[in-house]
Amino acid sequence: MNLISLFITSAIVNNIIFSQFLGACPFLGVSKKIDTAAGMGIAVIFVITLASVITYIVQKAILDTLGLQYLQTIMFILIIAALVQFVEMFLKKSAPGLYQALGIYLPLITTNCAVLGVAIINITKEYNFIEAMVNSVGTSLGFFIAIVLFAGVRDKVDNADLPESLKGSAISLVAAGLMSIAFLGFSGLQL
């Protein structure tokens, strides 16, 4: 498959949040501040890409050769958990400001469906290594775009005059739905 069309498909047409729903939890919980959202997005790009590389290699070199595919879930999630720990320690030392701003959301990247989801999808779609990389980077870039866009929208929405019941997640979800409609338009994109 053409790598460029794969990249654009992963990032936009099949946007990880608006189309595949993976990563919805942190997406909805993300701060209204665009720079924190951007920081989260970058952390996720880094974790997804690195996690995809490691899980792909582990799958091919260990799980497949030994016929241990049923251990995929356990191995993948442990790899991701360990990776997030390292990223946390790294950020604490080299970018303490960002580390503080991300707070609880950093360790929560471990339970971000997007990370494990992309790792598994790379295997089920039988991508080769390069395709898996392109898919991972494209997908996480899509996450970044979605999260930053949403932070911008969130700010306006939360300042709007709304009935009490709709405030908070209710209106966030509706807003996300409307953005999702916009992204649906991309499915007609011929690449």
């Binding site: 608006f18 189309s19 009935p163 019941s165 709709l166 997640s169 979800l173 409307l178 649906l184």
Partner: peptide, 25 residues
């Protein structure tokens, strides 16, 4: 059709949560 597609999921869930909020309040 939109109900089955991704946007529908977001919107319907959002409205459902709004309803639950309303009822509990």
């Amino acid at each position: 059709m939109i109900a089955i597609q991704p946007p529908g999921a977001f919107i319907i869930l959002g409205l459902l949560i709004g309803l639950v909020n309303y009822l509990s309040r």
